[in-house]
Write a protein that binds this DNA or RNA. Structure first.
Length: 428
RNA sequence: GGAGGGGUCGCAUAGUGGCUGAGUGCACCCGCCUGCUAAGCGGGUAAGGGGGGUGACCUCCUUCGAGGGUUCGAAUCCCUCCCCCUCCGCCA
């Protein structure tokens, strides 16, 4: 959520920045409404607070009179009126605040100045590239062809058990999935200084709203019908909410968490996309990195976080590149985002395998995460960041496709071999 | 799922309609005292929002699990929900 004070004081700047994101004119116009409502809010507030101050004084007077054994009937009947008025104004105030919040919750974050302006993914800026395209010397196959042939990916049984976009992983395929999870967690905890957490993968509405998945993106989420519980689409949701309503000790920042969780997405509206293979599943595994930082450190921390995620692909020897998302491609809550794209030929080339974002204070304001610079200082909002470190399934697909051999076997990257019981190849 | 108990200022507690935004103890901070430490003494110690001086200040409102209700007035009475504890049942 944007800061109403910031919007009020920088209305035109906010509007033009949002325009570069492709926010529709109607939503931008709603900002005027918010500013109007805020004005109204403050004027009602002044009135109702004055009434309350009077009432409180009169109440004290009544209590004094009663104590002295005197009658206070006149005062009491007079207070009845102003009390009704207070009730009415409080109600109005609540309505105004709710309307403001309704609008603001639908307004995305303002992009950072360093974000390239653009409308399409084509306008994203490539920052760097690692490795090079494998020189196969034969016609490479897709990961699903290889996976089925090796009997490590069973799509038919995935469908039988759950439906489209589910897969059954078997044997060394299942083990490879697990190996990747452990490899990534170990790397981030021991080399990069993140604290490992294992959060609930079902969360309540309040938590889901905190990070911005609700109310706007309910159709992308799985909801439990009889309970106030949703399946998380990413570990970002529970992990960022760990510190909801907390006031953190500034000396402890930045806080860095890493979490492995399964993720669940309905993928509504992507019916035609990535139908084959394991690229787009309703359930997938992901190792997620989350940071809470001081405002002035968040952009350095974004660079570090992106580097941490990239390290995974480097150690696995996977060809990939890093791009800066342009304003039009930016996610709802992000102020700046780097995507790390792995080379997956069956997906037409580079495919997002990690997305690292700085949300600045946008999420922190929603979930009220603050810190104190020192003991006496006033609380300030932290900045939150997160990024995949990295998506397990897509990495597995990249490994299969980049390490495939002409005979249909797949080599295991050296860094992963200790996690695979020492084997260096999956073959029939 | 059944029965009972409980959620108050960092922690522990007091408080059943009126100077209670809230007492006491602990913890913490600042002074004083003591050769040092401990003890002792004095003072202080929440957040959010509004208005004003726009300098670290002043002032007002709100907040005692959450939301509603009764009342001139609610931590205190009533209703709903959430959470925690004990016992029983069931289970990983």
């Amino acid at each position: 959520m944007l800061d109403i004070k910031f919007v009020r004081e920088n209305l035109e700047m906010v509007k033009s920045k949002l325009k570069t994101r492709g926010v529709d004119a109607a939503t931008i116009k709603e900002l005027d409404t918010v500013v109007e409502l805020d004005k109204k809010r403050r004027s009602i507030l002044v009135e109702v607070e004055n009434l309350k101050a009077d009432r409180n004084k009169a109440s004290d007077e009544i209590s004094r009179l009663k104590k002295e054994g005197k009658k206070a009937d006149d005062m009491i009947s007079g207070l009845k009126q102003s009390s009704d008025k207070i009730k009415m104004l409080d109600e109005q105030l609540k309505d105004v605040v709710v309307s403001m919040k309704d609008i603001l919750l639908d307004v995305p974050n303002v992009p950072d100045d360093s974000v390239p302006v653009g409308a399409e993914p084509e306008d994203n800026l490539e920052a760097r590239r690692f490795g090079k395209e494998p020189d196969y010397g034969f016609e490479p196959k897709s990961h699903w062809e290889i996976g089925e042939a090796l009997d490590i990916l069973d799509f038919e049984r995935g469908v039988k058990l759950a439906g489209a976009r589910f897969v059954l992983m078997k044997g060394l395929g299942a083990k490879l999935e697990r190996a990747l999870i452990n490899f990534m967690l170990d790397l981030h905890t021991t080399e990069h200084g993140y604290m490992e957490v294992f959060p609930p993968v079902m969360v309540n509405t309040e938590t889901m709203t905190g990070t911005g998945q609700l109310p706007k993106f309910a159709e992308d989420l799985y909801k439990c019908k009889d309970d106030d519980l949703w399946l998380i689409p990413t570990a970002e949701v529970p992990v960022t909410n760990i510190h909801r309503d907390d006031i953190l000790d500034g000396d402890l920042l930045p806080l860095k968490y890493v979490a492995y969780t399964p993720c669940f997405r309905r993928e509504a509206g992507s019916y035609g996309k990535d139908i084959r293979g394991i690229i787009r599943q309703h359930q997938f595994n992901k190792v997620e990195l989350v940071k809470f930082t001081k405002p002035e450190e968040s952009y350095n921390e974004l660079e570090a976080l992106t580097t941490n995620a990239e390290k995974v692909l480097q150690l696995l020897g996977l060809y990939h590149r890093v791009v800066v998302l342009c304003t039009g491609d930016l996610g709802f809550s992000g102020a700046k985002t780097y995507d790390i794209e792995g080379w997956i030929p069956s997906s037409g080339g580079f495919k997002e395998i990690s997305s690292c974002s700085n949300f600045e204070s946008y999420q922190a304001r929603r979930i009220n995460v603050r810190f104190r610079r020192d003991k006496k200082a006033k609380p300030e909002l932290v900045h939150t960041l997160n990024g995949s470190g990295v998506a397990i399934g897509r990495t597995l697909a990249a490994i299969i496709e980049q390490y495939q051999q002409e005979d249909g076997s797949v080599l295991i990257p050296e860094a992963l071999q200790p996690y695979m019981g020492g084997i260096d190849r999956i073959s029939r």
